[in-house]
């Protein structure tokens, strides 16, 4: 089902751009230009609300309050030209889930919307599958194309750390501290050795483990 998104933005150009961009990205946007109109809308039918604060008709914070009372679960992403901490704190106190300050790039807003709808971002299920790779976190078993792969403890923990957050890079420092045994092998150099062994053992799926320059490693798509 296409997620419905409510946009409350009085600026014609910005509102149209947002609506177009969200539609292109597979959402079904509804665009309101006025605070009064926004107050008359029931927010429960929407997956997310993008709310400008400076609106004609009613202030965005009043709309936010009304939406919070009507639909406690619907995430509200506040758009504001005010880039100061008290404004952010106030919006978050009234129940906003995120705060984007103008000027912003459409990509930035889109990513924030997607992130909000995708939560939680951590891998919750015990079994992770991508391509021919299958990782069972509870059973501590790995298979590529159905064939079991034997990994050392460190190699499995390394892979598990990447699998828990697919698409996000994990820093070398974090991996060294949380995956390697500090007494025996706790150095950045050993980490690279572990990664190259892991890649080799995973065969064709080993390429999914991408090196991120200056950061660490990431499990790619």
């Amino acid at each position: 089902m296409t997620p419905r998104i409510l946009i409350v933005e009085d600026d014609e150009a910005l509102g149209r751009q947002l609506a177009d961009r969200l539609r292109q990205s597979g959402f079904e946007p509804t665009w309101l230009r006025d605070g009064g109109a926004a107050l008359a809308v029931d927010p429960t039918g929407y997956a997310l609300v993008v709310l400008d604060l400076m609106l004609p008709g009613a202030h965005g914070l009043d709309v936010l309050k009304a939406y919070r009372e009507a639909a406690a679960e619907t995430p509200v992403l506040v758009l504001s030209a005010r880039n100061d901490t008290p404004s952010k704190v106030r919006a978050l106190e009234l129940g906003a889930d995120d705060y984007v300050t103008k000027p912003f790039w459409p990509e930035e807003l889109l990513a924030r919307v997607q992130a909000r709808l995708r939560r939680p971002s951590l891998q919750r299920e015990s079994v992770f599958e991508r391509g021919a790779l299958r990782v069972d976190l509870d059973a501590r078993s790995v298979a590529v194309g159905g064939a079991a792969v034997e990994l050392t403890r460190a190699e499995f923990d390394l892979l598990a750390a990447l699998v828990r957050r697919p698409g996000s890079a994990v820093s070398r420092q974090w991996l060294v501290e949380h995956v390697l045994d500090p007494d025996r092998e706790g150095s950045a150099r050993t980490l690279d050795v572990h990664v190259s062994r892991l890649r080799r053992k995973l065969g064709p799926e080993g390429g999914r483990i991408a090196t991120v320059w200056g950061v660490g490693y990431r499990l790619g798509p």
């Binding site: 912003f104 790039w105 990509e107 990513a111 996000s168 890079a169 820093s171 974090w174 950061v215 660490g216």
Partner: peptide, 29 residues
């Protein structure tokens, strides 16, 4: 996220990582 567009326009690869656990600091966001 904010710099993804700039990085792409500049042809620079921007990578980032944060720890799994939340890291808080006292300050003005």
């Amino acid at each position: 996220l904010r710099h993804a567009v700039l990085a792409r326009a500049a042809g620079v690869e921007l990578g980032h990582a944060v720890p799994e656990e939340a890291v808080l600091a006292r300050g003005d966001v």
